[in-house]
Each structure stands twice: as structure tokens, then as C-alpha cells.
Design a protein around this nucleic acid. Structure first.
Lengths: 191, 191, 191, 191
DNA sequence: TAGTAAACGAGACGGTACGTCCAGTCTTGAT
DNA sequence: ATCAAGACTGGACGTACCGTCTCGTTTACTA
């Protein structure tokens, strides 16, 4: 028996859409709640009622607002090296685009600034990707493609970390060759 | 033949010290120029005269203000695995402390928010650490400990990236065991 | 032949009571519809359905909500001076209390800010008091206690105005002596 | 030895001018600090730095901003009735204009809402006018035109109060005839 | 040993965005 | 049809900082 008006789904969408557009247009640090509210045609209070901070809105825009691509798939062809290579190459491609880069920079800024946001993002964004990797690596172990004592979490962390570092160091976006080399390096000793 | 009063060294120190203290206390996003000036007992104009932006002050405070530890040394005992392990363990220890973690989070936020700061920090902070790794890896190649076609830049990036990801994912600070496993993984196929 | 639910008398009373309590507690400018609704245990819409503005609620609370004391009686002993003195003294007593003062200040603020409220309040609050005075003065004329050409409306206005000025000037609440002096002054030349 | 930039006289004038213009244009309750700041081309903080409330700005605009006419003079022709009549007529004329009415309503609202503002206004606006009256009445006593035991403060209060009541009751602005009648009434018994 | 020019502390300035409060409206399920 | 509940848009609030701009003071080189 819930009384009173229900949360407006259209406002929710408008806010997340506005956050997405403005984030890609101006970057995280120049994103303001005022601008999101204006762009979305919404009262500021409606934003604060449901999110409470800029980082939280951005995190939700990334997760539910269509900003993050659907989980980049990690195929299971039976050959772990091929599959990881495909996954990592897809990521490098995404990060080479302005959109992908802006997104990761924004999420990183939000993570580094706000512990609560960091937790949400790990739970719903980074974590699932990491889990995807781990699952595929586990299945490769089970299939005998990797030694059974291979440190699966470490491998997953290393693969993600190398991507992250390339984006944050800002020198040059990672390339397909980089991706291949990382995969080869990581799998070389894990046979 | 400079006329007029010289730049005050004591003000410069006071500003960098204040920035360091406030950065570790409150984090990058809550750091303000007003607070730095007040804490340093300095006029705001003196900050803007020499630095021009919050990010620039933070970068300088990190680099020249005693915030960043002296380059963590990478010994050359002749055994590359031992040396990398020592280096990575020293880093994990530093990151396990509140100060080290806060520092990396602050610098990461600054990097993700401001391209100019990112460049300064890469050039004078991240870059030198990366170079240190590359040099040691090169010497290991020359000494025949690693294959001559080993992708040195990739290895360096992977080592740093794995540290970064552990800090940013916020799940748990990296441990000595993690460090050892990363080193073993990365060197396993590079013999 | 009214269809549907009837207006709730208990809500009406609760709203007027809440307005009265909050008005005296915090003054007119800090009175909010939200607070009235909460205090009355009533939806805001119920207030807007029947009153339409804050001023209207206040006016009604003053008039029908038990905020304004029942018309201070103006006796007719046959001696106009005695009667006016009694009336004016009763008013000064009322205004010397915190409640009376707060009330007049609140109604004055409402009057000065909102023309519509001013009209309602004059018609149903100030006006009747003024009329009471005029009627008594007229009867005194008829009884030969005052000259027949005495400016009755002016006398009434002067009596009320002197009270009002004392309250608004905020220097000190009017006293019984003041009241007596005003009456003597006003009647002195009206014999 | 005052250090730092001095208060900007031009901003002060601009704020008071803006307050005056907007007050007369829209009335007290619709006057906003935001609008004053925008109209004056000034930061809001500059207003809050020096005034702290809407009422205080309005009070100052009235007193120092050219809103209130210079003290309406009370001549001393030797005939107290003539002089009071002139003074009161000048006031009724001023109050019959939209500007005068708006002003008094605004100052009354400010007085009724904020005790601190009320005190400032009494001290610097109402008080001086009252004092003017008292001084003239005292000199009339000294000259033998009024009885020596005449209640001067009461007369002054009654004169001002009658004006105030006419404005606030909002029925009709006071006329010259009203003014004459009040003077005659008040002086009738004070010979 | 003046004179002068730059840097200094202080702090007010025009602005932008903040996060909160309230007005007045709209929507919901219950009475 | 009205009610209590409560989310909605809109707009002003008063605060915090931004980066700039005076001030009068201090410092150190130059004439």
C-alpha cells in the first residue's frame, strides 16, 4: 500500500540522458548538477532526492543510462588466447574512441573522489567485467589449457590494470598490438 | 639584472606544505586555493602568481613538496625476479598506508580531471618510475636473464597497471603475496 | 445533490489550529504551507483546495481560528470617556502580551505584503473594530456628550492608529497611562 | 592600517539604487536578493557581506539610497496649527503617490518581519520624524500656544499613527481634509 | 642613501555552482 | 469528490570558492 505519487520514470531517464550528453560534451569536472537539471527539464531537488551527488548520477548514467556499452562479450571458442585477444582488442577499440576514453576518465575521477561511488561502480561495472574474465580463465583451466594452479585473479587484475594504466597515463590510447602483447605475456607462463 | 623584491622561498615552501597537508587530509576534490592560502598564511595572489591552477599546485606539491616518496629504488642484484619483487613489495607497502593510498587517489583524480596536470604528472612522476622499470628490464635482457625479444614496455605497463587497479578498485590494498604473484606471472613466459 | 466525499470539518479545524500555533511561534514570514500541513496531519492539496495562498490561511486562522480574541467589548455606561478608556486599556493589555503583539505584527506583515489579504483583514478584522468605535461615538453624540459636529471617523482612526504605531515602533508596548492620555487628548476638544 | 581592497562605493550605490528601483517596481515581497544583485551588476556575496538580509538592504536603500524624501520640514511660523497642518498635508501628499505608499508598505513589512531592521528604521527614519514633531510641539508650549502640561509624546504618536493606519488599512489614501481634521482634533483640547 | 619596482598579506570584487527550502501542482490509492 | 501522502517543476535562498583586482607594506636592487 504505497501512497503518494510514484517516482517519475521519464524524469529519471531525462536526468540520466542529460548527464550522459553533458559528460561527453564537457568532461566530468565541468559537469554541474544545475546544468543536468536544466538540460533534463527537471528541478534540482529531483536529482538530489534520488542521487545525492554528482558522482552517483554519473555512475548511474554510465550503468543504466546507456553510456557503458553492454558487457563486452568474452567468447569461448575453446582457445583462451584467441578469446582474450578478442576481448582486449574490443576494449582497446572502445577506449580509442573519444567516448570510451571520456567515460573511463569520468568514472575514474568519480571513483577517486568518492568512496561510496567507487563501491557502486566496482559492484556494478568493474566487478562484472573482472568476473567475466575470471570465469573464462577458470573454464580454460578446467579444459586443461592453463595449468591448474594458475593465479586466475592475478591474471584478471593484470589485464584490466594494463588497460587502465594506458588510459590514465594519457600518452596514447592502447592499440590492438598492445592488446596482443599483453595477452601473450600473461599467458606465456601460464600454460 | 632583476629589479624589485625576489620571490619568497618561505612562501613557496609554506604553500607546498599546506597543499600537501590539506590534500592528504581532505582529498583532491575538497582541496581549495582559499584553504591553502589560509593554511600557508599567504595571499591568494601569491599562489596564482606562480602556479595558476589548483592542479599545478598539487602536482608541484607532490613532486617538490615532499609528498611523493623519493623514487622507490629498484636494486640490481643480478636477479631480475628478486629485484622486481623487492620493488613491487615496497610499493604495496607504501600503498597499504593511508598516506600512500590517499596520495595515489588524489593524483589519479587530478589526472582524470585535468589533461595539463596529467601531462605534468606523467612526465615527472609516473614516467620516471616507468623508466626505472624499463631500464632494469633492459639490463636483465642484456644480461641474458630475459629473452632478447621480450616486450619491455608492455611488462612495465602491466606491473604498474596492476598496482593502480588494486588501489582504484578499492576492494583491498595489494599485499606482498599479490606482488610476488604478479612478478612470477609476468616473468614466467619471458625467460 | 452533492456527489462524493464531503469536506472534512476536522481537517479544516486542524489546519486553522496549526496555522495559529505556527504563526505565533515563528511569525508570518517563517510560516510555511508545508509546516502547516505537517502539523495538521493533512495533505498540502487540502489546503490549496480551500484557501489558495498562505495569506488566505492566515487571515482565516486569525478570524475563524480562534487567533483573534472575541471583539473587545466597548461598554456603554453612558460616559464616553470611561468607555473608551476601558476599551483602549483592554487593547493595551492584549498588546502587552507576547501573543497579542505577535499577532498584530503577523497581520501587519501580511497586510503590507499582500493586497488581497489586506482587504480581507480590513473587512473582517480591523473594520469591525473601527465600526464598533464609530457606533459608540455616534451614540455619545446623540446623547449630547460630544458636539454634534465631531469628526467621528477621524477620532476612530486616531485611536486605532495610535495603538498601531506603538506596536510597530517596537520601542515599548503601550501602557494603561498611554491609553488614558490618548482618550483624554482626543475627547478634550470634542466636548 | 587597514589592509586589503577597500569597499567599493560604486557597488554600494548600485545595490541601493537597484533595491530602490525593484522595490517600487514589484513591491517588497517580490523583491529578491538575486534580482538586486543582477540589476546592480554585483555578486550576491557583496550584498551579504555588508547587509545580511533583504530587510536591511531595503532599510538602507530607504535611508541612504534616496528613497525616502529628505525630512519633510516642519516650519515654525509661530502658529502651531498652521505648521502641523502643513507638515501633515505634505505627508498625505507623499503617501497619495504610488512611490510613497509602496515605500511605507515595504518599510512596514520589513519592520514587522525583522526586529533588528525595525530598530534601525526607528532609529534613523521614524524616530527623527517623531522627534521633529516633539521639538515643534515643545517650542509651541514654550511660546504659550499650548498648555504647559500637554502630553507632547502622545500627540506626536497620535499624529503619526493616524497616518500609518490610513495607509495600512488600504481603504483610501489620506487626504488634505483628513490631515486638517486630525490636527484640529488633536490641538482642540491642548490649548 | 634615496628612489623605485616587484612581490607580499590581506581582503573585497563579479561570478558560478552548490545543496536546501518552499511554493504551488500533479498523481496515487484509500475513504 | 475529497482525503493523506508524497513526487514533481521552478525559483530564491545563503554559502563556498573561483580567479581577479586593489590596497598599503616589505624587500632589494639601482641610480
Amino acid at each position: 500500500m504505497t501512497r503518494g505519487r510514484r517516482r517519475s520514470e521519464s524524469s529519471r531517464r531525462a536526468i540520466l540522458d542529460a548527464a550522459r550528453v553533458l559528460l561527453l560534451e564537457h568532461g566530468y569536472e565541468r559537469l554541474t548538477i544545475d546544468a543536468i537539471a536544466a538540460q533534463a527539464g527537471v528541478g534540482k531537488q529531483t536529482i538530489y532526492r534520488w542521487w545525492g551527488s554528482k558522482g552517483a548520477v554519473v555512475a548511474d548514467a554510465a550503468l543504466a543510462g546507456g553510456l557503458v556499452p553492454p558487457l563486452i562479450p568474452l567468447p569461448d571458442t575453446g582457445d583462451i588466447e584467441t578469446d582474450l585477444r578478442a576481448w582486449l582488442r574490443a576494449w582497446t577499440e572502445h577506449l580509442a574512441s573519444g567516448v570510451g576514453r571520456s567515460l573511463i576518465l569520468a568514472l575514474t575521477a568519480a571513483t577517486a573522489e568518492d568512496r561510496a561511488v567507487a563501491d557502486v561502480l566496482y559492484e556494478r561495472f568493474t566487478g562484472p567485467h573482472e568476473q567475466l574474465l575470471r570465469d573464462r580463465l577458470d573454464s580454460a583451466c578446467a579444459a586443461g589449457q592453463l595449468g591448474s594452479e594458475v593465479p586466475v585473479p592475478t591474471i584478471a587484475g593484470v589485464l584490466i590494470g594494463s588497460l587502465l594504466y594506458r588510459v590514465l597515463s594519457m600518452q596514447a590510447p592502447p592499440t590492438a598490438d598492445d592488446a596482443d602483447m599483453v595477452v601473450r605475456l600473461v599467458l606465456a607462463g601460464a600454460a
